[in-house]
Design a protein around this nucleic acid. Structure first.
Length: 872
RNA sequence: GGGUUUGUAGCUCAGUUGGUUAGAGCGCCUCGUUUACACCGAGGAGGUCAGAGGUUCGACUCCUCUCAAACCCACCA
């Protein structure tokens, strides 16, 4: 048989994926059509978190694909209708920015091209990018149903987007308002609150004479737009001013401010008095609503001062700041400047400083009660996780790990209205038309619809929707909501698996929108994975240059090894540290499995698919079958509880430490194991397939599917059943046997005796003599010794004797290392146990089984000690 | 300011509801090519479980505090 010694993943993986894909079996409908599962089989659905169309596959994606494919393949093997639905996201700002950069390198600007021409270029770019990412996803072995692939800008998906917009508008949940928003002057667009990041910065705190008081501010130029003066109600310094309207003279400009007191003012900061600028600060805007202050916008969308800023109109914000401060100084109004550590808000995409300003935008009202439900969006989303919605999807959403519940609730409770309009071109254009007027006109007559109004002359809103608006609909917009058969079959989905970093951006918003639109939860479980970090624990990123390219790793070690490196030792919600040696280590495991099957194939004339439980003929057989049975139980249990790491660790341990290191070695001694090896290999490949699909399928092909028939492929086999629940009492005998062999090897090794030299030993055991005699061949072969059985009388103190915890004794005519250290630790152990057993509290309060156990331990230890002392 | 997580062998991590002399992989040391595998085998060294208290008959495990690291939310006008 010409099976290579080493498994070279890259020689097999592409061909295997092609076979899987060609079979059509990623699509549950095809399995039904072929009679491989019943149409009544339970459903298990995951929608793939759609990667951005801009991107290359990175390790975050790779991890996501590994976990999701694992779940899908497990359920497919369990006989479910397993649907994993692929798709991509148009990623509005990210994509537009990327293409802008590309055309900029050719010296072009999007404004010169015009909207339509620019969008054409973006579409071309997206087409290419999509093809790349699709193939990269395939490289990981992802068993996605490509026939159902979706894209956020697909016609039907877009249709759903517009439909939902209209529904929300009709329900009064979407409104247009002139409110404060986060404005990115570079992107020239609004951002949602959670798209804003913060960065610490050294800034100046300017103390400015402000009529009768002094205020402190880091942004003097905004003071031109002040309409209020605030202090804390307990601050007696300013109480006399409460309710007054003050004229403030800045020398170069005059403003009018209303004085009010609010608990949110910190009297300790600065002078305790604040100039309030409703148009350019989130909290000031809220105060303006509360205390009915006028709103004066002094900074525009380009980051320049407006007409309202008087002589500074048209200046850049920073230029104005400089000029204004100079003017204040001149007028003797600048008291002092203090350095201060300040958090400034920046755009999460381009890190430009955010300019909060008022603007006429579209918002989703998260607090308004939906009349037919008498609940707000916020309440609905909380309910979905807290108690469940009742009705068809009465399950409540379970977040794994659970601790993220708290984070989720906290976020929702503090959620403000969500600004959904973006001033960029790439995305879903807002389905709103204005009659003969420009959208800036507040009084414009509005038409909201899925299609444009019939009459001529209506002008569509220039803006597009926040990319997360369409992503929020993803579980049902991809399944043909509301009438599609797939929607009825596969929604709610079972699991959403994604990174915890988009819990708010995406997961929470899906819950908000889906519960509102469909009355169902979008998914039953949320499995959150962590971030992939480098060896130093740093986040992998392009700018740091510490990123590992998953495609390189696949090329070098194979997709299976990469998958293992991201599953083993990883728990949900926790970050994972990845580096090349780790992946190489798991490549070795894959190779080990390969060689195990190689050995089996070389020794077995024939491999047969069978469900016949094999007959155990020897102690070793009993042991391995019992261990394997436990393994089936363990892996199934762990996977049902989403403990992926524990499941594969159990498999790893079985394959390497039990099957390869012991049982296969014993087959070389006992021979004639085809029935058992056939059984174990067959079922083991099924158990391990969700973790390492490629190598398992390849071994399967060589063992059970040499003609490469679709219907015989591993990916559609049935998950093995646990045969017997009780553990076999004979197993303990095998453990004793192992112990003896390990002890013998240890003696040989430490005495410097060559492994291959067959060492003569005398063995005596009171308890296990017959066991050892029965297993003599195994002992002699595995430990490389020649046994002479002793009876008790022939024991003498003259020979060096080794004891084991199972109270057997063997003596050999060689030097054995000093035992004093072992005696020390044993003595300590015994003392501890004796103390414990003399303790009346322990005897009375501890459960009797524990006490018995401790007594047994003490006896064992004493016996052992006695034997060591007798034969030092 | 509020919150979360983490701290166990040189490194990466397990350790189920408190009941072993605390485990694994990698790395390290010694030996080794025996009918699959050197991407291997055998043996071995290595830990006062961050620290201090407390609860308990008993704590790596539960509670409190301290120290250290990472992250999230709010935000300083």
């Amino acid at each position: 048989m010409d099976i290579p010694k080493a498994y070279e993943a890259k020689n097999y993986e592409n061909e295997i994926y092609a076979r899987w894909e060609k079979s059509g079996y990623f699509n549950p409908d095809v399995l039904i059509e072929n009679g491989l599962i019943k149409s009544t089989a339970p459903v298990f659905t995951i929608v793939l978190p759609p990667p951005n169309v801009t991107g290359q596959l990175h390790l975050g994606h790779a991890a996501m694909l590994a976990y999701e494919d694992l779940m899908i393949r497990y359920h497919r093997l369990q006989g479910y209708q397993a649907l994993w639905l692929p798709g991509t996201d148009h990623a509005a700002i990210a994509t537009q920015t990327k293409v802008e950069k590309i055309i900029a390198s050719e010296g072009k600007k999007k404004e010169d091209l015009g909207r339509e021409k620019f969008l054409e270029i973006v579409r071309d770019y997206v087409d290419k990018s999509k093809a790349t990412i699709r193939n990269q996803i395939r490289k990981m072995g992802s068993s996605l149903d490509w026939s159902r692939e979706k894209y956020t800008l697909d016609k039907d998906v877009s249709q759903t987007v517009y439909q939902v917009f209209k529904k929300m508008y009709d329900d009064g949940l979407i409104y247009r308002g002139n409110r404060i928003v986060n404005w990115c002057p570079r992107c020239q667009s609004t951002l949602a609150d959670d798209e804003v990041e913060y960065e610490q910065q050294q800034a100046n705190l300017y103390y400015i004479k402000y009529g009768p008081v002094v205020i402190a501010t880091t942004r003097p130029e905004t003071k031109l737009g002040d309409t209020g003066l605030a202090f804390n109600p307990n601050d007696k310094r300013y109480l006399h001013l409460l309710g007054k309207e003050l004229k403030i003279n800045f020398g170069v400009a005059n403003i009018k401010v209303k004085v009010f007191a609010d608990n949110e003012v910190d009297p300790e900061f600065g002078t305790g008095a604040i100039g309030v600028t409703p148009a350019h600060s989130q909290i000031d805007f809220a105060w303006a609503e509360k205390y009915k202050l006028p709103i004066i916008k002094v900074i525009d969308e380009k980051g320049k001062m407006t007409e309202a800023a008087g002589k500074y109109a048209g200046q850049d914000v920073l230029v104005c700041r400089e000029n204004f401060v100079a003017d204040l100084k001149q007028a003797g109004l600048l008291e002092k400047i203090e350095p201060i550590n300040n958090n400034i808000s920046i755009c999460y995409r381009c890190h430009t400083a955010i300019e909060p300003l008022t603007s006429r935008q579209w918002f989703i009202d998260v607090n308004k009660k939906i009349s037919r439900l008498d609940k707000s969006l916020k309440e609905l989303a909380i309910e979905a996780v807290q108690t469940g919605l009742g009705g068809k999807s009465d399950k409540k959403i379970e977040i794994i790990p659970e601790r993220f519940n708290k984070v989720y609730f906290h976020w929702l409770e503090n959620l403000r209205d969500w600004c959904i309009s973006r001033q960029i071109w790439w995305g879903h254009r807002i389905p709103v038309w204005y009659k003969n007027k420009k959208q800036k006109d507040e009084e414009a007559e509005i038409y909201v619809g899925i299609t444009p109004p019939q009459e001529a002359g209506w002008v569509q809103d220039e803006d597009t929707l926040d990319t997360w608006f369409s992503s929020a609909l993803w579980t049902f917009s991809t399944l043909g909501w509301p009438e599609g058969l797939d929607f009825k079959r596969f929604h709610p989905t079972q699991v959403l698996e994604t990174g915890y970093d988009i819990l708010f951006f995406w997961v929470a918003r899906m819950i908000i929108m889906t519960t509102y639109v469909t009355g169902q939860i979008p998914f039953e479980k949320v499995y959150l994975h962590g971030l992939v970090r480098d060896r130093q624990g740093q986040k992998m990123s392009k700018s740091l240059g510490n990123g590992i390219d998953p495609l390189d790793m696949i090329e070098k070690f194979g997709a299976d090894a990469l998958r293992l490196s991201m599953i083993i030792g990883v728990t949900p919600g926790n970050d994972l540290i990845l580096y090349e040696e780790k992946i190489a280590g798991y490549r070795n495991f894959v190779n080990k499995l390969w060689n195990i099957s190689r050995y089996i194939l070389m020794n077995l004339s024939e491999l047969k698919l069978t469900n016949q439980y094999p007959q155990a003929k020897t102690l070793a057989d009993e042991w391995i079958l019992s261990e394997f049975n436990n393994l089936i139980f363990q892996v199934t249990e762990d996977l049902n509880q989403y403990k992926f790491s524990q499941a594969i660790e159990a498999l790893y341990e079985f394959v390497w430490s039990k099957l390869a290191d012991w049982y296969l070695e014993i087959t070389k001694i006992e021979g004639n194991k085809s029935e058992i090896l056939n059984y174990i290999l067959q079922k083991l490949l099924i158990l391990i397939h969700p973790f390492i699909p490629f190598v398992s399928e390849e071994i399967w092909t060589q063992s059970y599917n040499r003609n490469k028939q679709d219907k015989l492929m591993l990916m559609i086999q049935r998950w093995p059943q646990v045969i017997e629940k009780k553990s076999n009492p004979k197993i303990k005998d095998f453990l004793v046997l192992q112990k003896l062999i390990i002890n013998l090897r240890s003696v040989k090794n430490e005495s410097g005796i060559a492994t291959k030299q067959s060492l003569p030993v005398d063995i005596y055991s009171k308890e296990f003599l017959s066991l050892f005699q029965q297993q003599q061949k195994i002992i002699e072969n595995l430990a490389r010794v020649k046994i002479n059985w002793l009876d008790k009388d022939s024991m003498t103190a003259n020979n060096k004797v080794i004891t084991s915890e199972y109270s057997f004794v063997f003596k050999v005519d060689i030097k054995v290392k000093d035992k004093s250290k072992e005696i020390d630790t044993l003595n300590k152990y015994i003392n501890g146990l004796e103390k414990k057993l003399k303790n009346k509290q322990f005897l009375s309060k501890a459960p009797s089984e524990v006490v018995t156990k401790e007594k047994e331990k003490l006896n064992e230890a004493k016996k052992k000690l006695a034997q060591i002392k007798k034969h030092p």
